[in-house]
Design a protein around this nucleic acid. Structure first.
Lengths: 183, 183
DNA sequence: GTCATGTCGATCCATATGGATCAATCTTTC
DNA sequence: GAAAGATTGATCCATATGGATCGACATGAC
């Protein structure tokens, strides 16, 4: 049990009933605070803009809506992020011939450049964050986290009764959970 | 590899270089969106208020500042959360005799009641979230996450150069990382 | 004692966030 | 074809957020 770098109160919390929820929140929120401040400070953009840029570069021609299934954020957040990326010239939109409502998104050369920078930085941050684990442990951790992510109730909860999601909010994408029809 | 409930794009992202960062963020941000909406909707308070209430109940007499080492949030966020909890009568502050600036915080009976409700709900949510794992896998996952949390660079990054934290922001508590002096 | 400095928690204010709504477009039904 | 309904992405607006500052108190040097 490697409690050594955690203070007494944290140790106590991480021994309580809600330990798992508390612990993963602690990790991700703590990490986000550091990372978000860095990105906002260095690149004058909200983190969601960089997330969106990442998604667009990775999936050329992706639609705005689809970005939401990768980064579970509200619809208007993505909309604004894309608008910012367009203003800065990092992203261009090709009109979709099949559907006039859709925006088909592509990164520009400039966008790719800045993304490469930011990705390199993120990789170093990732290495730093996971440094306490051995390579094997990292694999194990990743595998287990993947199981959690693939669970049916991550984005929609049965016990919290959060099934009437408003339109602008997270929606459990039918694509994301293909053949579910729970019980 | 249990990719079954993840769509194609997510599967791709979770196979890329930034997979670990992407995956844990996906889990926690997705979960938070659901949970926050529930707490805000059901209890008319921001999540940080409930976090603070939890901390105060768990550590009677805790100071506002110390809550920050459990929940890595900015100072003014905690300040506001406590102010709300006081207004609602969930928390009372005993004056500290040793230091006139400090607030020693305690939950009221009313606060304990509502906390019990919320905790019960969180427990069910936790069970739901981790349901894809066996008991043994949960232990493994928890142990590895604990190692990450206990790492030196969670709240302060060397590679992002985020060491000049402003006063109202996250501070790597000296208590939290006791005898570090990194090389 | 006084003055400088440090720390705790509240408040100010500009910005980010997210729920709701809207216009535009597509699909379905008759 | 017209009308109803669904879907995409932008915008409106009230609220939350977080960096900076402030006042109150504490501590240390002289």
């Amino acid at each position: 049990m490697s409690f050594m770098a955690l203070n007494e109160k944290l140790t106590t919390v991480f021994a309580g009933d809600l330990r798992e929820l508390m612990l993963i929140s602690y990790i991700v929120l703590g990490n986000n605070a550091v990372t978000n401040r860095f990105i906002e400070g260095s690149y004058q953009m909200p983190v969601h803009a960089w997330s969106s840029l990442y998604a667009i570069d990775r999936f050329p021609g992706i639609r705005a809506k689809e970005i939401r299934s990768i980064f579970p954020r509200p619809q208007n957040t993505i909309s604004r992020a894309i608008s910012l990326l367009e203003q800065r010239g990092y992203v261009r939109q090709g009109a979709s011939e099949s559907d006039g409502r859709e925006k088909r998104l592509f990164t520009t050369t400039q966008g790719q450049q800045i993304l490469a920078e930011m990705t390199a930085m993120s990789l170093r941050r990732q290495a730093e964050l996971f440094a306490p684990l051995t390579a094997e442990e990292r694999d194990t951790f990743f595998g287990l986290a993947l199981k959690i992510a693939a669970g049916q109730n991550l984005l929609q909860s049965v016990v919290l009764g959060s099934n009437e999601a408003p339109s602008s909010t997270l929606v459990a994408d039918p694509i994301l959970n293909p053949g579910v029809d729970r019980d």
